[in-house]
Design a protein around this nucleic acid. Sequence first.
DNA 1: TCTTGACCTTCCACCTGCTGGAACCCTTAT
DNA 2: ATAAGGGTTCCAGCAGGTGGAAGGTCAAGA
Lengths: 128, 128
Amino acid sequence: MNIGDVAERSGLPAKTIRYYEDIGFIKPRRGANGYRHFDEKELHKLAFIGRARSLGFTIEDCRTLLALYEDKHRASADVKRIAKQNLKEIDAKIADLKAMRATLSHLVAECAGDDRPDCPILNDLGRV
Amino acid sequence: MNIGDVAERSGLPAKTIRYYEDIGFIKPRRGANGYRHFDEKELHKLAFIGRARSLGFTIEDCRTLLALYEDKHRASADVKRIAKQNLKEIDAKIADLKAMRATLSHLVAECAGDDRPDCPILNDLGRV
DNA sequence: TCTTGACCTTCCACCTGCTGGAACCCTTAT
DNA sequence: ATAAGGGTTCCAGCAGGTGGAAGGTCAAGA
């Protein structure tokens, strides 16, 4: 497979795949013309990374997960620990966003939203 | 006030305040020794930006809000429109995170988390 | 008066995770 | 022969800062 095929099948842009090679996730062979040549295993790895990224794992998380993925002797406990940590971070982000949302929607509700210059949103933002 | 005082009172790191000067948010006077010298008005502006940033407004949003903040003739409708747009984006982010959370917590629940190498989390991530 | 330590300055590089573009080579069909 | 549509490299840049080096300045204590 060329990079375009892998891009289509994995759902990742070709640019991103080249970047993932750069940072050492994959090492595709090269044809005589210099083209990258991918096998099914690399496709799976890329799909793996893509899904992990879309679940909010960082690149460094992916590195760890990938090592575990490739290690037939690893314990599922390791993986679960990382996933749980990730879950905690997601929960923290959701809580942050909800707090923001509450403050902002309160301000929006108080703002007349008309032609007058008086605006509770700006007044509140300017408090020191 | 020197930058350290403003940093403490505004809650922003000194580095960030210098950066905000760089991108044109403030233009503090300079003393004979080259030190930045801030007045209350600039402190307010920095506090304003800090709060707006913490509510998820981008730097460009801040630029607009700051212009409105300083314009005594602006209508509150302009401000409300920007805030509402921001609210929509926050909602979208929350929805995304919740979807991630659901998938991940499902995987975590299915994983035995013991010494065995079989792990549903990795199996699922590896699907193409 | 000297020295120490806490401030302040500038500048440059780096972080995450890509993405865009330029300039170029290779393949395939017409 | 040529044009379209692959592929390659490298360089620059996005947001929004952060870290560090190398140096100037100020105030207090011995």
